[in-house]
Simulated assay, not measured.
Amino acid sequence: MTTTDHAGVRPRRYPLLLLVALTAIGVDLLTKELALANLSVGESVDVIGEFLRFTLVFNTGAAFSMGTNFTWVFTCIASLVVIAIGYMGLRVRSLWWALTLGLMMGGAAGNLVDRFFRDPAPFQGAVVDFIRLPNWPVFNIADSCVVVGAVLVVALTFKGINLDGTIAVDEREGGEDSGEDDETEGRKR
């Protein structure tokens, strides 16, 4: 695969990535505090009938409450993920990748705040979850950000959009002998 770029160097999108991450963290923490202030543990409040409920639970494990005895491991892994995204984000010049990585970084960091600062102890804190859908584990805004970010990673990868905003061109499909206009190959997203 090759990339084609006729438009020059795009600006870095790191400030956007950080803004998205900080917004995700802020919204996550705000909604968790609202849940803690307005719900009792295990209490379930209908928001949209039985489709959407708020139910306050504390999760010391990973997704779907797996690994509840290994909270410190998930804390270390999530910390490494946030650091890796922060480092990788320095290369981002694509608006879509900045949004995507910002959501993932903010979601991971939002749950890390719980792990670091909530009871029972630092690095072992329980994550506050409160959003409940039918046939699905209770989750929070941070979890939603991570999932939406992961879906966007898949979409951007399938579309061939690189971190720098160039589009990967498969030489077998869009190479020089295909007759395609080089101007369209270097489009940026």
Rank of each mutant, 00 (worst) to 15 (best):
M1D: 07
T3P: 02
P11I: 12
L22H: 03
A24S: 14
T31K: 02
K32N: 07
L36V: 12
N38E: 04
L39V: 14
S40Y: 04
S44K: 14
V45R: 14
V47N: 07
G49H: 02
F51I: 13
F54T: 12
L56I: 13
V57G: 02
V57M: 08
V57N: 01
F64N: 03
F64P: 01
T68Q: 14
T71H: 11
W72N: 03
V73K: 03
T75M: 04
C76G: 15
A84P: 11
I85C: 10
Y87L: 14
M88C: 05
L95E: 01
W96N: 04
A98W: 11
A98E: 03
L112Y: 10
L112F: 10
D119Y: 04
P122S: 06
F123E: 00
I131E: 01
R132P: 00
L133T: 13
P134V: 07
N135W: 12
W136F: 15
W136E: 00
V138K: 00
D143N: 08
V147W: 07
V147Q: 08
G149D: 07
L152K: 06
L152N: 12
V153A: 10
V154L: 15
F158L: 14
G160T: 10
G160Y: 07
I161Y: 02
N162E: 12
D170I: 13
E180I: 14
T184R: 11
T184M: 06
K188Y: 06
